[in-house]
């Protein structure tokens, strides 16, 4: 992934830091009905983190304003409530004219129904292979530990 990002604590996060890794990119929010998906995301991180995989959380406030906090509040919420260990970026736009280039790229990918385009809601998931290709897109209601997600991850682990 050739994108320059910023970690939620303000430090740079170069896309090439993920070279050779499978990355599950998920737009997250702290006040969403789907927020408990953090638990499954962290379990994926624990299960595959030593096998060339990481979750990358992307806080986004474009969906009913459900990620309104400061970076410190977002980070504290994730680590204290769900014990997350995977990286988070700064808050980004994932849809619209001001969407981050990462998401301009990701949203060209199709889901299981062949649909590309806008992110539908919080916790949409994109799996990027170690070679830097988008290999799967899962809509928000697909749980992180759904067999479709697990299977896709295991099929691309380096």
């Amino acid at each position: 992934m050739d994108f320059d990002l910023t970690r939620i604590d303000g430090r740079p996060l170069a896309g090439n830091e993920f070279s050779g890794q499978a990355v599950l990119i998920v737009n997250v929010a702290s006040r969403c009905g789907l927020t408990p998906q953090y638990e499954g995301l962290e379990r994926l991180q624990q299960r595959y983190g030593d096998a060339g995989f990481t979750v990358l959380g992307v806080p986004c406030n474009q969906f009913a304003g459900q990620e309104p906090g400061t970076p410190e509040e977002i980070q504290q919420f994730c680590s204290a409530t769900y014990g997350t260990t995977f990286p988070l970026t700064e808050r980004l736009d994932v849809n619209g004219q001001h969407s981050h280039p990462l998401y301009e790229w990701l949203t060209d990918a199709t889901d299981a129904d062949g649909e590309a385009g806008e992110v539908q809601w919080n916790f949409e998931k994109f799996l990027v292979s170690p070679a830097g290709e988008i290999v799967a897109r899962f809509r928000p209601t697909v749980e992180p530990e759904d067999q479709r997600v697990i299977g896709a991850i295991e099929s691309v682990l380096p």
Binding site: Q62, A64, N95, G96, Q97, S99, Q120, W121, P140, T141
Partner: peptide, 20 residues
């Protein structure tokens, strides 16, 4: 909305913002 027919979603997709 997310497969729920009893819901709908209002979207602003403009130069100012994208919000759902």
């Amino acid at each position: 909305f997310l497969g729920r027919p009893e819901m709908l979603a209002f979207v602003e997709d403009s130069a100012l913002q994208w919000f759902k």
